[in-house]
């Protein structure tokens, strides 16, 4: 359970780590847009180049970034295979068997799709690998400020997110502890039918639920005792500021987007 990389912070002192989280979120959005704007392999190559540059400057080992793909690998392969089977190309199919037709374009398209998703997942994982959950929520809160004008309780939402992130490791430890305790009493989570396995989770879920309620209650008391009273007149310690790093990021985004668009205009679209 602890080997899941996606969403885990990788501590390091790097250019990317020091960037403003808002900039990184915007960067990611722009990068995703670029991936979807790209309609051929040249465009994706530009995105890939951008990704490599980012990884190099983040000091996160490439292996860690790749590991994030492992979690969604099944999904990737599944979508790709589906596409191979169901893509209807022009011309004759390469392979024809009963109702299955496989076209050359289908295979191309599948490969293209896999590349796209790969880039997408790796790009997102760089954000979470280089940004602490706290500054991520801060960045989101700040970006979502627009919604505040629509009277949405942004501050509370951000606090809820921050607390949720803060308790993930605590609850993971607790789950492991309870699992071990029940295993020591002979509980078996690894064998049997699906129904049996689901049933075996009850001795874990109930204590976990009860302890979460207890923690929530205690945390509520502790927050009250530390003068929490909602958003009125609350100040913020961490103010986000725009620096030269963010300017470099903007430049990189501009480069990627221009590259992708140029290739889109001058070369034939694959899809």
């Amino acid at each position: 359970m602890k080997d899941v990389t996606f969403g885990q912070y990788y501590p390091a002192e790097s250019f990317v780590h020091k960037c403003d989280p808002r900039m990184k979120i915007i960067f990611l959005i722009a990068y995703i847009v670029a991936i979807f704007v790209a309609t051929n392999f040249y465009g994706l190559a530009v995105c890939f180049l951008g990704l490599v540059v980012t990884v190099v400057f983040s000091k996160v080992p490439f292996k860690s970034v790749l590991r994030s793909v492992k979690g969604v690998l099944f999904l990737l392969v599944f979508t790709a295979v589906l596409n191979v089977f169901f893509y209807k190309g022009s011309g004759d199919p390469l392979l024809h068997w009963k109702f299955i037709n496989i076209y050359k374009e289908g295979i191309y398209y599948s490969i293209f799709l896999i590349c796209r998703l790969f880039l997408l997942v790796m790009g997102s994982s760089i954000l979470t690998l280089t940004t602490t959950p706290v500054s991520l929520t801060d960045g989101l809160e700040s970006l979502l400020y627009v919604f505040k004008l629509m009277r949405l309780p942004i501050h509370e939402l951000a606090l809820i997110m921050s607390i949720a992130l803060r308790f993930i490791p605590t609850l993971m430890d607790e789950t492991e502890r309870i699992m071990n305790a029940q295993k020591a009493r002979g509980a078996d989570f690894e064998s049997g039918s699906l129904v049996k396995r689901a049933k075996a989770l009850i001795p874990i879920l109930i204590p976990l639920l009860i302890s979460s309620f207890r923690r929530a209650e205690e945390l509520g008391d502790a927050m009250d005792a530390r003068c929490y009273s909602g958003s009125k007149e609350r100040t913020k310690y961490k103010k986000l500021t725009f620096t030269w790093r963010d300017a470099v990021c903007l430049l990189l985004i501009a480069l990627i987007l221009t590259g992708v668009i140029l290739f889109k205009v001058f070369f034939a679209a694959l899809v």
């Binding site: 602490t132 959950p133 706290v134 606090l159 921050s162 607390i163 992130l165 803060r166 605590t170 207890r214 923690r215 205690e218 945390l219 502790a222 927050m223 530390r226 003068c227 929490y228 009273s229 007149e233 609350r234 100040t235 913020k236 310690y237 961490k238 103010k239």
Partner: peptide, 26 residues
């Protein structure tokens, strides 16, 4: 319980929580 009174995942952010609540300047 030391685990049930922290709101943030970074030490200084947690310490800042109280003063932020009472509106202390940055």
């Amino acid at each position: 319980n030391p685990d049930n009174q922290m709101v943030a995942s970074i030490v200084e952010d947690d310490v800042a929580f109280g003063p932020e609540n009472i509106g202390v300047e940055r």
